[in-house]
Design a protein around this nucleic acid. Structure first.
Length: 628
RNA sequence: GGGCCUGUAGCUCAGCAUGGAUAGAGUGCUGGACUUCUAAUCCAGUGGUCAAGGGAUCGAAGCCCUUCGGGCCCGCCA
């Protein structure tokens, strides 16, 4: 918060000085200095005024600086014009320290009101319920979960949905495997049901199609029966997908992701939402019945560019798969009457209730899971489809950005990791494929990471009991995986490498968690509670000031992350905090400081750092173990 | 053929939205710091034609155009 106060103060003062000097109004920028050599804050106003005033930027910077010096205000200590034309500011650290430390103890530190409690839907995860989650799905989950957390921190009213495609081909495939392929309904002992379905039934059944065309024919009839939802096969499919879903959710919860409601595709299909949307689109004339050409007899969405038109309804009158996505998107935006009723699916870790939709009327109060805005997290291979849906939604609801497809690039496997799966790629990375069995399961990665983190924790904390060590190991394993998935920009491919994922040093989740554990230990060993009724004038080494400056940026980072829907901003912020603390830890002694009052001030700082880091880590869903 | 993404240090990536100072991290490699609040750490060194070319600008890694390399997508399948 405090950095924002400082920036606002400078912005306002410079604005006033420009008016006083009779300078034209320009949109100047006040921002963190690019390097600490330059000071704390920089302003580019002199560049922007150079042209209209016909002066050198440096001369303008000098003029403004000398005016500024007459009244430095609360947070500024020094103003210097730089040769380059920037005006640089050094903060009044006494004020910065005091303000930052005192505000950072607040429970809601870092929160900021951007959303104004706007109802916003985040849909993520949405994995076909016929297999276990692999590391590609994990990226989706972590992005979606982190975005939800960011938006909550920015005061949006967030609803998190998980769409369960329980009536698609992939489900039909495993049903064929169970019913006609001879696979037992129960997995071998010690194998999770979702792993069994994905690793064995799905992969092997798909393989069998190659040689057994009859088997492949069953797929079509099974799919049809599932969609109709009446037959024994449909009931069987429902039973299977429920079991897989339950296992998938365990993995999601293990990763720290929770949801508000499960939406089932089968119910969307069986509701009348498609008919309503279809009629609406006809009325609005945003779809056309083709009279000629290759799509004769089909209802299509005409492309606005050179791309192919998209068929919505076949010449047979049957809707295509996109007909499931359109009503769902419109439903999420609350544009259609709600045909669903809601029942409790169960209670999630942390106590949050998970709801699910049903079509049968019940006496429960209706719950509104729609939003004024909708964010759908799906990888960018589906961009074309999502673009069409976004376009349709914007004709239904003209509000800018009402429907957002938050796309991200895929997770691929490194050549080395592929070769562990007996896939030779000639040194190139490879796309994962559930169908071909080329993937790394999320549970497997967490388990392997857990073994390593357990060993590391035990080595360092031999006195801790087994349960505590296991909990620490799990927290660090999840932290490592989540951080790795979120630190990279959304439009960069992540090449997953098993060996590399085990690295716990440098720019990783465990590095950050470690800084937290160090802070906790200092506070434990101090034996006294920090007392905050002091002005914090003595925290004046560069390490202390850097740490305090980092802490003071929390809400600015939240704002940036929320406005750009950029989870990595928060990952980088956590890292920034940890780096500042680790440098402080190495160079500044807390418990053996020269005086009692200095010990206390530093204890306060360590305490506030610990609280701030925990809150920042929580935004990326990484927990903060006390010991590591 | 069309659409989207991408190219910055040996490797993995920030920085690009909103142009401005000597382009930053991690990792790797070299060397240093643990009888001290946990070395999952810190410090120093090493390492760059910001893919290439052009344009607009006082000023470009960033904006515009072109070219080249890499990836993904484009069914009356789901």
């Amino acid at each position: 918060m405090t950095l924002r106060l400082l920036l606002d103060e400078i912005r306002s003062n410079i604005g006033q000085i420009c008016i006083r000097l009779g300078y034209p109004t320009v949109q100047f920028e006040v921002a963190e200095a690019a390097k600490s050599d330059f000071g704390d804050i920089s302003c580019n106003v002199a560049f922007l005024l150079a042209k209209p005033l016909g002066k050198r930027p440096y001369d303008i910077a000098k003029e403004i600086s000398s005016q500024y010096e007459k009244n430095l205000g609360r947070f500024v200590k020094k103003v210097t014009p730089h040769q380059s034309g920037y005006i640089n500011f050094i903060a009044n650290y006494s004020a910065l320290n005091n303000s930052t430390i005192k505000s950072s103890v607040r429970e809601d530190y870092g929160s900021i009101n951007i959303g104004n409690k706007t109802r916003i839907v985040v849909e993520h995860t949405s994995v076909n319920p016929n297999k276990a989650l692999h590391v590609g799905h994990v990226r989706n989950i972590i992005i979606g979960d982190t975005i939800s957390r960011i938006l909550k921190k920015a005061n949006y009213d967030v609803r998190i949905l998980n769409y369960v495609d329980d009536s698609g081909l992939q489900v039909a495939d495993i049903v064929v495997g169970f019913k006609y392929g001879g696979f037992a309904e129960e997995p071998p002992k010690d194998q999770k049901f979702d792993h069994y379905c994905g690793d064995i039934v799905y992969v092997k059944t798909t393989e069998m199609y190659e040689t057994d065309k009859k088997l492949e024919e069953f797929r079509t009839t099974v799919l049809k029966e599932i969609e109709e939802g009446k037959s024994e096969i449909a009931k069987f499919a429902n039973n299977i997908t429920r079991r897989v879903l339950a296992e998938q959710l365990k993995t999601c919860w293990r990763l720290g992701s929770t949801y508000d409601c499960l939406n089932f595709e089968s119910q969307i299909v069986r509701s009348n939402l498609w008919k309503i949307v279809f009629e609406k689109m006809k009325e609005m004339e945003i779809i056309q019945l083709e009279k000629e050409g290759k799509n004769t007899g089909c209802w299509v969405i005409r492309s606005e560019t050179d791309e192919e038109d998209k068929v919505l309804v076949r010449s047979s009158g049957l809707a295509t798969y996109i007909a499931k996505d359109i009503p769902y998107a419109a439903w999420k935006l609350g544009l259609l009457g709600d045909p669903f009723y809601y029942v409790k699916y169960g209670e999630q870790p942390g106590g949050k209730i998970l709801w699910e939709t049903i079509l049968e009327r019940n006496s429960n109060a209706k719950i509104d899971f729609s939003g004024e805005r909708v964010i759908t997290v799906i990888d960018s291979r589906q961009s074309r489809l999502q673009k069409i849906i976004t376009r349709l939604m914007s004709s239904f609801k003209s509000q800018e950005g009402a429907y957002v497809h938050l796309g991200y690039e895929a997770v691929t496997l490194s050549a080395e990791t592929a070769s562990m799966l007996n896939v030779e790629t000639g040194g190139k990375q490879i796309q994962m494929s559930g169908r071909k069995g080329i993937y790394v399961n999320a549970d497997y990665v967490l388990d392997i990471l857990g073994v390593k983190t357990y060993e590391e924790a035990k080595k360092r904390n031999p006195e801790l009991d087994e349960i505590r060590l296991v909990n620490i190991a799990e927290a660090v394993a999840v932290g490592a995986l989540r951080y790795a998935m979120v630190k990279q920009d959304l439009d960069k491919i992540i090449t997953f490498d098993m060996a590399e994922s085990l690295s716990l040093e440098g720019d990783t989740g465990p590095y950050i968690q470690y800084s937290y554990a160090r802070a906790v230990r200092i506070l434990e060993k101090a034996g006294v509670k920090p007392q905050f009724d002091t002005p914090f004038d003595n925290l004046n080494t560069e390490y202390e000031i850097n740490l305090i400056k980092a802490m003071s940026k929390f809400d600015i980072r939240i704002e940036e992350a929320a406005k750009n829907l950029s989870p990595k901003v928060m990952a980088r912020y956590c890292y920034e905090l940890a780096v500042a603390f680790n440098a402080f830890y190495e160079h500044v002694k807390v418990l053996t400081a020269e005086s009692k009052s200095l010990v206390n001030e530093r204890l306060c700082l360590v305490h506030c750092f610990k609280e701030t880091l925990a809150k920042a880590l929580d935004v990326i869903g990484v927990s903060s173990p006390d010991r590591m």
